[in-house]
Design a binder for these strands. Structure first.
Lengths: 241, 241
DNA sequence: ATTTATAAGTGTTATTTTGACACAAAATTA
DNA sequence: TAATTTTGTGTCAAAATAACACTTATAAAT
């Protein structure tokens, strides 16, 4: 099925930047390589694309392979194509960002792939250009989350406003005024208050909320300005490359 | 230099969505294919990546090959990877968006590639998934331009406020209040007023402005809110796929 | 020389949004 | 029942936004 002559065919891989949030810190799901090169070093979960699948399908397959999870929020970040980024053979890697509710994959981490959650701030050194991918993913997440209700993907179905606030504060490494924050969040109309409370983290307890799924899908593209002056927290793209 | 065994190598191409603006309308630079498949149909300018270059280098090479231009604003849009998107042979295409000052490549359009500027609104049918690429590029441009001073890339070094307003109005297919628009633009501090006027489009003439290059580079990432309620003009991403 | 036509350029005000700020309520534990 | 801790909410001043109309400069026409 080779028909264009005189062209070089290249390996194409997918690498997944998988974010989670444990209520306290952002976490990154990494795997320890069991094979050369860079054996025993940490890396993003990845794999080569197959002849009959799209990059998106490959990313989902690879994520499922590791975590067993399906229907996860996932989006294409960027293609990385430095000719010598993989010392073994030229490989173009397309990075995908996945956001998962960490509770869905916390215990029984894959032994096969030697998977482990690392606090984003204590990330080990990664192989190839994977650290750059993570930096870019972090920046992209900060960008998107400032406008779009995307961080909900990191929380379980029921969550509290204080949890949500910790999520935003963690991403931008800042503190937010809780009165202004909850006013803004509630004014989106995306949240449905539940009757029950989460009593884990306080005596009083905090009311649970759920996402209004219909509005969530409709308003995903809406600009909601969750974060004041988001550019303060963003790294100039040119610096990242 | 093949070292990973049992994997399929794939053709990787770059396709360029090249936008211009003629003062009136957005234009798209297309080429007419001189070879099968889809001979004589219109398509984006593209080409295969070479063994020793990155995707970005390939995109710049291909753009230069067509237009002779270098140092053009260019950024990666997305990889398109449907296994059958190219009927001849599986090819993954990475789309790049380029913004050029149309005056730098208006006359002497490449005969070799049969290049032509089309008004974006009167785009012919394109081969493969190129129309989808253009849609996505348009949406991405609308998104970025709402916040970042990116559209200047489409104008010559010296430009007037009314030209700039036409540029924004064209992109969002809307009208803007010129008092509010110029106030907002001038308040960014990005523009340096020139002593001379453009007398092309009015008797009174409109003062030229130039970009303050230092500020431009510094503030590129800043959120400037050029367009009120930009989500009104954006297509939901899920609709685009 | 005067008038006319056309696009450029600018200022005010009401409304909305934002950001800064502090105290009361609920419930567990001492 | 008092103390502690976290949740939950209201006000007000400042800033940003959106709506709105008239004057100015100049070339072309009379």
């Amino acid at each position: 099925m080779i028909k264009y002559s005189g062209q070089t065919r290249i390996l194409v891989a997918v690498d997944c930047i998988i974010f989670g949030f444990d209520g306290e810190n952002y976490k990154l799901l990494l795997v320890q390589r069991g094979f050369a090169p860079e054996r025993a070093k940490w890396s993003l979960m990845g794999g080569f694309i197959r002849p009959d699948e799209t990059l998106e399908q490959a990313a989902n397959r690879i994520l499922k392979q590791l975590t067993g999870l399906e229907n996860v929020y996932m989006e294409q970040l960027q293609a990385f194509s430095s000719p010598d980024r993989d010392p073994v053979e030229r490989t173009i890697a397309v990075a995908f960002v996945a956001l998962i509710d960490i509770h869905k994959y916390e215990k029984q981490l894959s032994k096969e792939y030697h998977a482990e959650w690392f606090p984003l701030k204590e990330m080990p050194h990664l192989i190839f250009d994977h650290e750059k991918m993570v930096e870019l993913a972090k920046n992209s997440l900060r960008y998107k989350a400032a406008f779009h209700p995307i961080l909900f993907e990191l929380l379980p179905e029921k969550f509290t406003i204080p949890q949500l606030q910790a999520l935003y504060e963690g991403l931008y490494d800042t503190t937010l005024d809780k009165r202004n924050f909850s006013r803004k969040l509630l004014s989106t109309g995306l949240l449905i208050k539940q009757a029950d409370k989460d009593k884990e983290s306080s005596k009083k307890g905090a009311f649970y909320y759920k996402l209004d799924q219909n509005r969530y899908l409709d308003d995903f593209q809406a600009f909601l300005n969750f974060i004041p002056k988001p550019d303060k927290f963003l790294i100039n793209e040119t610096t990242l490359n």
